[in-house]
């Protein structure tokens, strides 16, 4: 399945400035593996050591938060749009 992945600004250094990348995969996990094959190191910015999505990263498939879908197992249709977005917290305890 060919799917597009929208790359957020903080990760564009790894993709040499590319904003939208086409990868393949039957589910989100596979698509991220393919993305990492093309841009080594990018997966580690999105997933932790146990392979879970990092706290400050949200992933959407066709505008749906994957936490409402099947997470990394969310299946991808041909032409699906994956968007990686910062979770954007703004607070601190100083």
């Amino acid at each position: 399945m060919a799917v597009t992945v929208r790359i957020p600004t903080p990760l564009r250094r790894i993709t040499n400035g590319e904003r939208v990348v086409t990868v393949s995969g039957r589910d989100l996990a596979q698509a991220l593996i393919d993305l990492d094959r093309r841009f080594p190191g990018i997966r580690a910015k999105i997933l932790d050591d146990r392979g879970e999505v990092l706290q400050f990263v949200n992933i959407f498939v066709n505008e749906q938060d994957v936490r409402f879908l099947a997470g990394l197992q969310t299946p991808l249709e041909d032409g699906a749009e994956v968007s990686i977005v910062p979770a954007m917290a703004g607070g601190a305890q100083a």
Binding site: P10, R13, K45, L54, F56, V57, P86, A87, M88, A89, G90, G91, A92
Partner: peptide, 24 residues
């Protein structure tokens, strides 16, 4: 960065380039 402590200049940015943590 609140999470990893990396410093950035005071510009119109809001997430840490290393860890996606919030900037303060």
């Amino acid at each position: 960065c609140r999470e990893c402590g990396q410093r950035f200049p005071a510009e119109a940015i809001f997430v840490c380039e290393s860890c996606f943590g919030p900037l303060e």
